[in-house]
């Protein structure tokens, strides 16, 4: 299989999963699509090197996270900062869909690195050491970012207390 076919097969096979991760990182469908597009363009640039290393996933993950932070930094300068969310979450933590909306809105207000550690640790189920490798930081940093992210989630959405405050940190 030539390089382009192999790349297209990889994209087709992983598009759903990478789209979901991008959505969790950005909190917005359009931004998630942009992030996936930019990530795969980057991967295409270095495809031969990526596949030479075996499984492309770690490289794609690393690119997606670094691109996410870069895109966020570029956007940060041009947005209004709100002291409170423009849309108030529905106060009904028992409904699963509402709970997802609240979590999505709360995630959107986390700093990108905080969001990244939550996605890596609790969506992708990576260990702290693996997450540290993706984010190119120390395990201590991952621990503190996770701790801060959970605290901030709880602050932004107190109705999620049972999700983020009742369990034991791992």
């Amino acid at each position: 299989m030539d390089a382009e076919k192999a790349f297209n097969a990889y994209v087709a096979g992983g598009l759903t999963r990478w789209s979901r991760i991008a959505y969790l990182l950005t909190g917005d469908r359009h931004q998630a699509e942009d992030l996936v597009q930019v990530t795969f363009e980057r991967v295409a640039r270095h495809w031969e090197r990526v596949v030479a290393g075996g499984d492309p996933d770690p490289y794609v993950r690393r690119i997606m996270h670094s691109q996410h932070v870069s895109l966020w930094r570029r956007r940060w300068r041009s947005v209004d900062l709100w002291s409170h969310p423009p849309e108030v979450p529905v106060d009904d933590p028992t409904a699963a869909t509402d709970r997802a909306v609240v979590v999505r809105q709360a995630l959107a207000r986390l700093a990108p690195r905080q969001r990244a550690v939550l996605v890596l640790r609790y969506f992708e189920d990576l260990t702290e050491a693996e997450a540290a490798k993706v984010l190119d930081c120390s395990v201590n940093t991952v621990k503190s970012q996770t701790r801060d992210a959970l605290a901030r989630l709880r602050s932004l959405a107190p109705e999620l207390g049972e999700l983020v405050g009742g369990g034991e940190l791992r």
Partner: peptide
């Protein structure tokens, strides 16, 4: 951290359809 948060993150993630990429990503 709890299994609950994992569930909700999965739930949030599932609401995202596959991204619409331009057909010329490789190019």
């Amino acid at each position: 951290m709890t299994a609950h948060l994992r569930e909700v993150l999965a739930e949030v993630g599932e609401s995202m359809p596959p991204a619409r990429l331009t057909p010329d990503v490789w190019r």
